[in-house]
């Protein structure tokens, strides 16, 4: 148990130490540690890649907007599917999972051409909507499971009281599945945060997210100093790690089970 945990976390611990300036000395026998703890390397990130902090803001905005749109559209469709009278809704839902598994590379080449033709290339809207479209199928799949688990009686009671679709969703369904919705939003935020290919082919530097920035300064400056790179990595990991920490209780509700709704 401890060994497994160590295997997964040691590389990150190594990186965290390097970002603080503590490096191993592999030439001595046995290997030892050198360097003293300092925060200098975090300041150097902004020098090595001047736009880094700007990229951090762009990443937060694109990932938040894309996750919100995907979860919003996905939730409505998931509710519609779960309450639809047609029998093949199960296969349709599985189809969404297959779509969620489709790598972006399968369609980003024509997507970039399409965006260029409608003059959306290098715009915030194109990146956000493309990321939302890439992740929405997963949201549909997970939220369909959550909605299908609800007993329809709750909604029927509200309908008897004269509630329309908006009231039923807003007052009855959404409060009941809120933990699943939040969990899905967090997972989608992480996926969007880490997405490379979509912003890569849709922008030429105007809308730059963290993975793009990291890949740039690493491709062009191979000699990048490890502590600075490590500091950039830790900064890029921190927001999603904090998010996962805050929401760790509801993250349980991100369930991919198909048993529900049967």
């Amino acid at each position: 148990m401890a060994v497994t945990l160590l295997a997964f976390l040691l590389p990150l611990l190594w990186t965290a130490l390097a970002s603080l300036g503590v490096l191993p000395d592999n030439s001595s026998r046995p290997p030892s540690w050198r360097g003293s703890v300092s925060l200098d390397h975090f300041a150097e990130v902004g020098i090595a890649e001047p736009a880094f902090w700007q990229e951090l803001v762009t990443s937060v905005l694109t990932a938040a907007c894309a996750a919100a749109i995907a979860v919003g559209a996905g939730f409505l469709a998931a509710f519609g599917l779960a309450r639809a009278p047609f029998r093949s809704s199960r296969v349709v839902t599985q189809g969404f999972l297959v779509l969620a598994s489709l790598p972006a590379m399968a369609y980003v080449i024509p997507l970039s051409d399409l965006m260029r033709r409608v003059h959306l290339l290098d715009t915030f809207a194109a990146v956000v909507l493309s990321e939302a479209a890439a992740t929405a199928p997963l949201a549909v799949f997970v939220l369909h499971g959550a909605v299908a688990q609800l007993a329809p009686e709750w909604e029927e009671a509200a309908v008897l009281d004269g509630a329309g679709l908006f009231r039923v969703i807003g007052r009855v369904v959404l409060p009941l599945v809120a933990p699943s919705v939040v969990a899905t939003a967090v997972v989608l935020f992480v996926l969007d945060w880490n997405m490379l290919l979509v912003p890569l082919v849709l922008t030429s530097g105007e809308i730059k997210t963290i993975p793009l920035g990291l890949s740039d300064f690493f491709t062009f400056e191979r000699e990048l100093d490890w502590p600075t790179a490590a500091a950039a990595l830790i900064v890029s990991l921190a927001p999603v790690a904090v998010l996962a920490g805050i929401f760790h209780r509801v993250l349980n509700r991100f369930a991919l089970d198909l048993r529900t709704g049967e």
């Binding site: 997964f8 990150l12 992480v190 490379l196 790179a229 890029s236 990991l237």
Partner: peptide, 14 residues
């Protein structure tokens, strides 16, 4: 969950 939170790009650099 931390390793999954690291982007493939960041994990490549690391």
């Amino acid at each position: 969950l931390l390793p999954w939170l690291v982007s493939p790009i960041a994990s490549g650099v690391m």
